[in-house]
Amino acid sequence: MENQSLRLKLRVWRQASSQAKGAFEMYELAAVPVHASFLEMMDLLNEQLIREGKEPVAFDHDCREGICGMCSLYINGRAHGPQRGTTTCQLHMRHFQDGETITVEPFRAAAFPVLKDLAVNRSAFDRIQQAGGYVTVNTGNAPDGNAVPIPKTDADEAFMSAACIGCGACVAACKNASAMLFVSAKVSQYALLPQGQPEHRERVLSMVEAMDMEGFGHCTNTGACEAECPKGISVENIARLNRSYLAAQLSGGGTSAVATSD
């Protein structure tokens, strides 16, 4: 493996702006180290383009350690590429073949408009969370952290839901461009904790409403989201959201909390 490098052909989506029409461009890279990450490969491409006097490819990235959720990319027909449980920044070139042609596209969804090339606007996710993804508690207003014991299983499950990094791979991978996995993970985190109960019903209704307003598609339970999620968020969250949503609608009118948990 040491000192090996790959010769690659890249088919990259280029689009000047949200309004512009995009198209694929072909590029060749002569020597990509196998231990480089996919984004480092993109860096090499950009260095090459700059040297050739061409415009570098715009793509989103930041922490490069798989947690900020900024990187995206649809690589060879898969969100974040072919490795399971991996963000693009943690995808390494050793998983590609010498001479391979790699197709790189932006995450595609009406709710994620392309800003430029491979960078898309995911602020729809922010707006969904602004609609209710919080507990109403002012700073300084909190009881002791151990005042309410939380069963370990609930805390762990809430954590599993809270592990979502908001990258949007679920939307990108879903054939309907649905955001249900994202929204359900957020709702579930609060649904599983006592702190989330008082506002549970309103939260479910308003976050789902916000999701629909953003123009995401509907969930048809294909499970692609779970399979493509770099953090392995389970579709059980979606079932929980569905349950909560139905319960919240049925109990409509009242403002009392509807507790849902497994």
């Binding site: 060879n76 027909g77 197709t103 596209e105 595609r108 294909t222 499970g223 692609a224």
Partner: peptide
């Protein structure tokens, strides 16, 4: 129709391995 509206432009890349069952897709 909703699904189409939610993703007006599709993907060209073809995955080596599908992550959702054939029937669900």
């Amino acid at each position: 129709r909703q699904a189409h509206a939610a993703r007006p432009q599709g993907y060209e890349g073809k995955p080596a391995l599908q992550t959702a069952t054939w029937s669900s897709r």
